[in-house]
Design a protein around this nucleic acid. Structure first.
Lengths: 321, 321
DNA sequence: CTGTTAGCGCTTTCAA
DNA sequence: TTGAAAGCGCTAACAG
């Protein structure tokens, strides 16, 4: 079972001092002979340096705290996969707390990570508030925000405006004249405002704005209202929203794309298996996750605040347009 | 920035001993007066107990290591959401490593967690090997396996056999006579063997078995072969597999469910938005995640090995049958 | 109810 | 190149 082999035990057995063993473990300022014997002893006993004792002395933990709005979402899962991939490669580890889309919890999580002594914190944010900015400046731990932007913080996110404009441009060139855009509230600056503005500016023609939440159901429920504007194309701020409306179209036997075209943002696999498959802007969330990790390491190595906008997305033209 | 306020500082300021402050922080065996003054001081100074020092003394870290095959999957995301929900409620925290579906990495992760001194380990496994069993018995840290079963370990998973039989029973009663079952390799005991056997036993009629992997693409590619058996119903071992074949049916203008019926396992939202929507066995992965956490706490509180089979799934009858 | 006293296991000067 | 010694910040007997 749990063999309580400590550094002293090894030292005793090897006939050296604890410091020597410690040196072997760290810098390695040690003679060949002793090194060999210690090495052997460690192997035999199965000794493992006590994580907490070591962290108590040195200042860093090789732990990165990650605050997530929720974990059961495709985008978050992909990002997390990207982040942990890079973290693990560098022998860092992720420790996660979910905020459940609650600003207060997000803040509490940041406090908690600080208390735990993580080396850095990554916050996949649902919106940056003044209070958060205050907290970031009050702690010395590097904090990186992802998904949202504020110039006073270190942020990394997709260039939502550009994403919106790519889709807008494409649909304009396709000759669509009237669009209903299913947007989410402005409280989500990235998805709510930037994506939409980019789209509207590039589409140039008529856009009717209808607000909805992020759910499949609410988009479905707005079907009648949407159709009352007789749009030639409907765009959902996310694929999920677009698919909610697609369900309505199916049930009302309205043909896509013959009667009406449809597009979304996300490029989730769901949009690939629907019929018709959904035209969408694919965001490479996993790649973003990797960038987030790199960005965090930069901050860790002393680089100062700055922001980054990722352009790794592309237009997937599929059957729905 | 990082104010290095320690428990001694607080003690000095409050005119008490460190132990008293420590007691305030923990058991609270302390007078009202001192409690009040310490409480105030902590608030003022922004003192936070040093995580590592405290963990060095007590044996517990309140950290649970979780080994995942991959994070960017719906099922895993849901489970993780359920697990972390309960963990966080109990002030425990999740620390994750991904195994990337690699047995070696899974084992390394278990070792690593042990070295780090987590209180318990949860392994969402892709298949239990002899080597793993050996390791579990060599460590004293409680380890809980999820998703797979071996009687020598603490396991928790869905009752796949029963899930299979529910769908088999339903399709038999519906009057289908010939079924193609798209199965995955036997190396995944739960999904590959149990689910399939439960199905076959309950369906009673003719079942043609075709092997495929977990991907949408491979299921799609097997379309011609599947149709050559002229089945009246096709069942995918996962929804994803079923949807891959659905894509084939769409492209070949074969009507579902008029010409052929289709069903899967999973109950993912993808099967809800497809058209027709997919009949499926819904597994409540989030609920399973919560159970996993509870189960882990039981082991933590000294209960011994045992296994648990979750029945929280149900038949979703939708348009495809 | 509270203070004193020992460490937890490790790292890190400092001198040798 | 090595060892002695001094803690990191906290908790937990023990005695009062």
């Amino acid at each position: 079972m749990a063999k309580k082999v400590t550094i002293s035990d090894i030292a005793k057995m090897a006939g050296v001092s604890k410091s020597t063993v410690s040196r072997y473990l760290n810098n390695g300022y040690i003679s060949e002979k002793k090194s060999a014997i210690i090495s052997q002893l460690i192997r035999d006993t199965g000794f493992k340096s006590n994580f907490f004792a070591s962290r108590l002395k040195t200042k860093y933990s090789r732990l990165i705290g990650i605050v997530l709005p929720r974990i059961d979402s495709y985008a978050v899962g992909q990002m997390l996969a990207g982040i942990t991939q890079i973290l693990n490669e560098q022998s860092y580890q992720a420790i996660i707390i979910t905020s459940d889309l609650d600003h207060e919890k997000e803040i509490r999580a940041i406090h908690q990570f600080n208390e735990q002594g993580v080396d850095a914190i990554i916050v996949i944010s649902i919106g940056i508030t003044e209070k958060q900015i205050e907290i970031v400046h009050q702690y010395s731990t590097p904090i990186v925000f992802a998904g949202q932007y504020d110039k006073r913080l270190s942020c990394i996110k997709f260039n939502d405006k550009k994403a919106g404009s790519i889709l807008g441009e494409y649909l304009r060139q396709k000759g669509f004249k009237t669009c209903v855009y299913l947007g989410v509230p402005d409280s989500d600056k990235a998805v709510g405002i930037e994506r939409r503005n980019g789209f509207i500016k590039a589409f140039k023609n008529k856009v009717i704005l209808i607000h909805t939440d992020f759910s499949f159901e609410q988009a479905y429920a707005q079907g009648d209202k949407i159709m009352s504007y007789t749009p030639s194309v409907v765009v959902g701020a996310t694929d999920n929203i677009a698919l909610g409306f697609l369900k309505y179209l199916h049930q009302n036997k309205i043909n896509v794309p013959q009667k009406i075209a449809l597009a979304g943002f996300g490029g989730y696999s769901m949009g690939e298996v629907s019929s018709p498959s959904l035209t969408s802007i694919f965001f490479n969330f996993k790649a973003l996750g990797r960038k987030i990790a790199f960005f965090t390491f930069k901050r860790l190595s002393g680089e100062t605040f700055s922001s980054y906008f990722e352009d790794d997305f592309k237009l997937l033209i599929r059957e729905s347009t």
